[in-house]
Amino acid sequence: MKYASEGQREPAVGRTAGPVPATSGAAEQPRQASHDEQRGTRNRVARSILDHGPSTAAELALRLELTQAAVRRHLDALAAEGVVEPREKRVYGTRGRGRPAKAFALTDCGRDAFDQAYDQLACDALRWIAESAGGGEKGEAAVAAFARARLAAQAEGYREAVESAPPEARTQALAKALTADGYAATARSAPNPQLGEQLCQHHCPVAHVAERYPQLCEAETEVFSRLLGTHVQRLATIAHGDGVCTTFIPKAGRASGARAGKAAHHTGGRTTQTTTASASTAGRNPA
């Protein structure tokens, strides 16, 4: 049984040369549907490699009931995205003539695109730490100690970038360092620029774990304070339902105490007033 090659089009009938007249937005729908279909099949190719291990184009075509030409197109696209990589297929026994077929295997990036249990593993590990310490306040303290040790090691990678920047550019330098670690961070003036700046993290790689263990957010806030050499205040966190992790950094010598902590910020479509938070509440939503 033959299978039609993906993306195969019917021959144009009665089509004349010349510019194509403008059409309504409805014309974009088939194009979008075709793109979605291509992406869906590409995912099937990657999933088949995940389920069966390194595979040749011929093996994938047989499994997925596609032509080898269609499979190769998808493999080329997946390789360009860094999802798969070609390898020389192992041959057991006597090798025949000709070059051995290439087998395509998932890269680490490709595997990460599928279901992972890292969040659950991290939560299980932190729960074990808490229970091993005796639970209760002792358990919370043990988790906090782990969080501080983890963030301290992470901060060493940021210290050089922050300390080499002039004082007025250190928040921006920290934002760039965080972005390199996947936090998509930016620095901007606070609503009242005379008071200070805001460090905004638009992504949190550990948000699901931090929702259960706010000590991670608290330790991060402490690290920001040490790196920037000033008291900072966590105004919002993704882990607790806000759209962005927002940290207020007061302008040195101008904002202190309650005046520094009473900075209005705009997060997730609403403006909020908060008062200075202690380190013990730095990872939680402001009241």
Rank of each mutant, 00 (worst) to 15 (best):
K2I: 13
A4N: 14
S5V: 13
E6A: 15
P11Q: 04
A12R: 10
T23M: 11
A26L: 07
A26D: 05
A27K: 10
E28Y: 15
E28F: 14
E28G: 09
R31V: 11
A33P: 01
S34C: 14
E37S: 12
Q38L: 14
G40W: 02
R42P: 00
N43T: 11
I49Q: 01
S55M: 13
S55L: 10
S55F: 02
T56G: 15
L62T: 13
R63S: 11
L66Y: 00
L75Q: 01
A77Y: 01
A80V: 04
E81W: 05
E81T: 02
V83E: 08
E85Y: 07
P86E: 10
R90H: 06
Y92G: 02
G93R: 05
T94R: 15
R95T: 06
R97A: 11
R97N: 07
A101V: 03
A101M: 08
A101I: 01
A103E: 12
C109Y: 12
G110D: 13
R111S: 09
F114K: 01
Q116E: 11
A117F: 07
Y118H: 07
Q120E: 13
Q120P: 04
C123K: 07
R127D: 06
R127W: 07
W128Y: 04
I129E: 06
E131Y: 04
S132M: 11
A133K: 05
G134L: 01
E137V: 09
E140Q: 05
E140V: 07
E140G: 11
A144W: 05
A147I: 03
R150T: 05
R150V: 03
A153R: 08
Q154D: 15
A155I: 09
E156K: 12
Y158M: 12
Y158V: 00
Y158Q: 10
R159D: 10
S164L: 03
P167S: 03
E168W: 00
E168S: 09
R170A: 07
Q172L: 11
Q172F: 02
A173Q: 06
T179G: 03
T179W: 05
Y183L: 09
Y183E: 03
A184P: 00
R188F: 02
S189L: 15
S189V: 07
G196W: 08
E197V: 05
Q201H: 02
H203V: 07
C204Y: 00
A207G: 00
H208A: 14
A219I: 14
A219T: 02
A219N: 09
E222K: 04
F224T: 02
R226L: 13
L228A: 05
G229N: 03
G229H: 06
R234L: 13
L235V: 12
G241T: 13
G241P: 13
D242W: 10
V244Q: 05
I249A: 07
A252K: 15
A255N: 02
A255F: 15
S256Q: 15
S256C: 08
A258L: 11
G261M: 12
G261V: 12
H266I: 14
T267K: 01
R270P: 01
T272Q: 04
Q273V: 10
S278N: 09
P286G: 09
A287C: 11
